[in-house]
Design a protein around this nucleic acid. Structure first.
Lengths: 228, 228
DNA sequence: CTTCTTTTAACATCGCCTTAACAACAGATA
DNA sequence: TATCTGTTGTTAAGGCGATGTTAAAAGAAG
């Protein structure tokens, strides 16, 4: 679970927050002093920081500044009794992600934390590239460019040809069910789409016939296997 | 620059925001009606959404729900006169990124937008933006000077001709999706902009026909490839 | 106004996908 | 074995949406 660094000098507020966040599945470390908080950040690995602005030792702005110097990404939320505009602007300029004025609603804080963490997770997910290049016997298949090339031979596939071949490639040497292909590409499994699929299989077989070690095998009433 | 979809029925508030955001370098589209706003989102590609909660036609929650169905990532901020806790929680559950109650401070809104965009942009790279000179077969294309020259031949390209050719050059020998070109140049993907693109492709083909090793290949229903 | 660029319109053309038609095949039944 | 039946293999035709192309209208800049 996500580790949160909380720096807050008000003891009752601090424990309240720790309780609340821990009961929501976060792993929270509480520090009451600015310098100690920053020190802890440098030593440990935190996914999230919640900083009070008014602190003994070192104020929230300074902590944020220091944190940003070594970590440009870790989300930071400020807690403040003040709702002064200048304070908020200063915070955002330091790369703070959100700003919450006391007294605040715990649930709202929770949702704001979740909103920011979600954004990070989505970002990481989308940076995973999907596989687009496959080797099929002596062929090279580039799904992104809809391009199939063998020795001397090169063919630009149509979108549907490409879709079908990609699905087969993703489960090479394994059975892919007719139904799964139909649902994935056409969104429905009926007689006519089934016949369309058969037409595309025939086309792909033609393209792939140069290398006789490659074949698209039919498993009657079940589906197809790309062997190679 | 970042494109913002703003849905706000209060006319004066709407224009105020548009003015303010545009003067801060954003490209803002304003819709006063919920349904129209959602429709616009589906057609164009937006980097950011700012939705009023109370709207005629379709309320902000419903818009957000629909937007989240097709785009899990685009940041959404709610504007609301109400500061009801239940409303806020509902919003965050829909995957909203922030929640701002009216009357709000424009600068604070701006910094909140920037905070969220910063988080997204941290991982993005913009290395391709600066390239301006390309070799296309026996042609030389200088995007900065909108100049295309072949043997003996030299042609000053118009802005849009240049934009289209540049995008194709940046992914030479690779498929560039129609949609991507339309979004990059026109900001939205609809029928008429699509036909405009086809017109520009025809023009570019004419300019490039001197070297027959160069071609702009159509990949039906997907996009184009600059071969050379 | 003129001049240049972009969009819209109109019509021609292309080619992908579906559908149809028939052949081949496998499995079931007797 | 032969026959029946449903599935798949294969090719071809046609519809229809997408694209190619040119010209006219609209827009922008001076």
């Amino acid at each position: 679970m996500a580790r949160i660094l909380l720096v807050e000098d008000d003891i009752s507020m601090g424990f309240l927050l720790v309780d609340f966040l821990e009961s929501n599945g976060f792993d929270v470390k509480l520090y009451k002093d600015g310098k100690k908080g920053l020190e802890a950040f440098r030593k440990g690995k935190y996914d999230f920081c919640i900083l009070d602005v008014m602190l003994p030792g070192m104020d929230g702005f300074t902590i944020a500044e220091n944190i940003r110097q070594e970590d440009k990404k870790v989300p930071i939320i400020f807690l403040t009794a003040r709702s002064m505009k200048q304070d908020k602007i200063k915070g955002f300029q330091l790369g703070v992600d959100d700003y919450i004025t006391k007294p605040f609603d715990e649930d709202e804080l929770l949702y704001r934390i979740k909103a920011i963490l979600n954004r990070i997770n989505l970002q990481e997910e989308s940076s995973k590239e999907d596989i687009t290049r496959f080797t099929i016997g002596s062929y090279q298949f580039d799904a992104a460019n809809q391009n199939l090339e063998g020795n001397g031979f090169a063919k630009r596939l149509t979108q549907k040809e490409c879709d079908v071949l990609k699905i087969l490639c993703l489960s090479k040497n394994e059975i892919v069910k007719r139904e799964d292909i139909l649902i994935a590409i056409w969104g429905e499994n009926d007689y006519f789409h089934g016949r369309s699929l058969d037409v595309f299989i025939a086309k792909l077989r033609k393209y792939l016939k140069e290398d006789e070690s490659v074949s698209i095998e039919n498993v009657p009433k079940v589906g197809f296997v790309l062997n190679g």
